[in-house]
């Protein structure tokens, strides 16, 4: 019996795809359809029959969209790079320890990860205040690092564990120091886990609200994009918010589409299994 795709599948696919695309669709309509067809009427238009760039242009003129995006970019890159800086050595070290110890360490990291963000963010912001880190890019990044570090360590550890054990021994015997063994042999071999860990950290930071909100509260000149967006939303600026939301989401959409295969792979669920 040849397995033929039943038409029922396509109905399910269509329904699910519409449900999952609709919120994005709403943002697109608000951002690109003249306001008289959206906010000007009782029930906004559902199809972008008339398109304008005026909303977007006005939004850029009226509120600061670029500043928060740049800060978010800075934060996300600091978070991603710091995650690798701390996570690559940690992942290597933990991979080398006996399984008994390394499993305990990983479990510990993930249990910490379960602590409620608000519970931790509040005292952190008090610490940071005395360190002059509140309302700074670095402060937000340092707080968000906490969210991404356990998964980063786990992904990197998995990468090191999957390498043949004798590879680094061979490099050492071939005359490489510990440093050049890392740089020339090991790191190139775990570049995919490194990339995945970086992307996930980057994306988590780009999206993160709680820590950013507490550590860099609503000060328009200091907050990241999610906090600024919240600010615009709560000030009832839907047009500017929609533009902002879309612009901030475009890079994420591209990243998810490009790196889909890694997200589907063992890295994500593997990380959560740990």
């Amino acid at each position: 019996m040849p397995s033929k795709t039943s038409p029922g599948i396509y109905v399910a696919v269509l329904i699910l795809a519409v449900i999952f695309f609709y919120p994005l669709w709403v943002l697109i309509i608000i951002a690109f359809v003249p306001t008289k067809y959206t906010f000007g009427v009782m029930y906004p238009i559902q199809l972008p029959l008339i398109i304008t760039l005026q909303n977007v242009i006005n939004s850029f003129r009226e509120v600061d969209l670029v500043g928060p995006m740049i800060r978010s970019l800075e934060v996300a890159f600091i978070v991603g790079l710091l995650a690798l800086g701390l996570g690559v050595p940690a992942g290597y070290g933990i991979a080398k320890l006996t399984a008994r110890i390394s499993n305990k360490l990983i479990a510990f990291l993930f249990i910490i990860n379960m602590m409620p963000g608000l519970v931790i963010a509040i005292p952190i912001s008090l610490y940071f205040y005395s360190l002059h880190l509140t309302n700074t890019v670095l402060g937000v990044a340092l707080a968000q690092e906490l969210v991404v570090l356990p998964l980063t360590v786990f992904i990197i550890m998995g990468g090191f564990r999957s390498l043949p054990r004798d590879l680094e021994n061979q490099a050492r015997v071939d005359g490489a120091s510990l440093g050049s063994t890392f740089v020339r042999v090991l790191i190139p071999l775990i570049r995919v886990p490194i990339l995945v860990a970086f992307i996930l950290s980057w994306m988590t930071s780009w999206d993160e609200f709680t820590y950013a909100f507490i550590v860099a509260p609503i000060v328009p000149t200091h907050s990241t994009f999610p906090v600024t967006l919240y600010n615009y939303v709560s000030r009832n600026l839907p047009l500017q918010s929609a533009t902002f939301a879309l612009i901030a989401t475009v890079p994420i959409i591209i990243m998810v589409a490009v790196f889909q295969k890694y997200l589907k792979g063992q890295y994500l669920s593997g990380g959560l299994v740990g």
């Binding site: 999952f20 994005l24 999206d207 999610p226 967006l229 994420i252 959409i253 998810v256 889909q260």
Partner: peptide, 12 residues
């Protein structure tokens, strides 16, 4: 299409 929202910010 179904994975994209994973990357969308909670605020968005």
């Amino acid at each position: 299409i179904v994975i994209i929202p994973f990357g969308v910010s909670t605020i968005v």
